[in-house]
Design a protein around this nucleic acid. Structure first.
Lengths: 204, 204
DNA sequence: TCTATTTGGGAACGATCATTTCCTATTTGT
DNA sequence: ACAAATAGGAAATGATCGTTCCCAAATAGA
């Protein structure tokens, strides 16, 4: 049974699909075909909706894309936070974070690609709205990495000589680079050895 | 004066533009707008050609794109080889190679982006021809990095303990990651500190 | 000079694009 | 029960897409 809270509904016929479920399907198509490579027909098919329904739920194609981007970030941040919560110290959290990116670069998900990287590459150069979201997302991830490095230095798991700013930036590049290489279908060993080698940067 | 060799010409009206010059202009548009984001109208305008001329020189839009990709690789390989020729030892050559990627990630060229990365992200997932070129290009660059690391180990400029395979793969990820970050307009300091930090991986 | 061949350039083509319109169905509030 | 409001869905819309066609211009060979 669904929630039986007698919440006062808005008038009119209720929507028959879940926005987030529809966006999850849009994410798949946008990720593997890009913004311009995805037509409204593609979205209708993958989201299982007619054009009318799409345009009642979203202003236009770009609004669908931006909503999918936001949903993607929400889902990925959830995965990342869940993994970080398992970390024992700063170093272990950095390792777990890199592994999240390495794992996302493998197999079908790897070939599908990262929506942040895809948006940066395809749209950021001339679409201000897309560029702002990309920049926000990347800055946040960079700051998160830097904070984890400082945490590791405080708990002794990461060498004090490590430059948190420079290494965070390096690991950020590495993460997006892995997502690019993921498009060509790397093996698990190829992705993981990169992570292991990068971790030696925290030793001293 | 141009070459005055009395080479026997092919019959018919001679082409009035240089293919490579036209492709150099196509590279700019394809790099910053992507394949699907670039229309034939965009190409006509940027290349200064009419539709008829375009379709006499190239089979279709995809052929223009692939020719631009090949031309891009040729030009970038030229830049890279020129820089590597100045290197004093293996370590210096690795540094110069990373700097080529770091420099390409800055300013206007950085925002424009890398055609290899762009093709990987936008097309590789569902276009076999594009995927093959991307894979070829990336494998070549990875092998080049690995060879330079081995060269450095032989001449003593890179620690013997370094794993050439793993570090080459890491530096490859880093290079493409820098090209992604270049889309958001990093400062020179941001790009260079990543390169400097990565070079410490070769110390031991 | 004539023929064959190729290019330049613009008009024209059908296909597909994103979007809107219109009608029916389903809900809320009175 | 009825009006107002919103969603579902198919058909229609105008714009733009990639591509072809056509004709004048320019070359090589005979």
């Amino acid at each position: 049974m669904t929630s039986s809270q007698p919440i006062s509904r808005t008038p009119g016929r209720p929507r028959e699909f879940e926005i987030d479920e529809a966006l999850d399907k849009a994410i798949v198509v946008f990720s593997e075909r890009g913004y311009h490579g995805t037509s409204i027909s593609d979205l209708k098919e993958s989201m299982g909706l007619a054009a009318g329904s799409l345009y009642k739920a979203f202003k236009d194609k770009k609004a669908i894309f931006l909503a999918a981007f936001d949903r993607y970030k929400q889902v990925r941040n959830g995965v990342l936070d869940g993994e970080l919560a398992l970390g024992t110290d700063g170093r272990d959290k950095v390792l777990r974070m890199l592994r999240v990116y390495a794992d996302a670069s493998l197999g079908e998900a790897g070939r599908r690609g990262c929506l942040v990287v895809g948006t940066a590459v395809e749209l950021a150069a001339y679409d201000a709205e897309a560029a702002e979201r990309v920049h926000r997302s990347m800055s946040r991830t960079e700051a998160q990495l830097e904070a984890l490095i400082r945490e590791g230095q405080n708990d002794g798991s990461i060498a004090a000589a490590t430059d948190p700013h420079a290494i965070a930036r390096l690991l950020l590049s590495l993460a997006y680079g892995m997502r690019v290489l993921g498009k060509t279908g790397p093996t698990r060993e190829q992705s993981y050895c990169v992570v292991d080698a990068a971790m030696t940067l925290l030793d001293r």
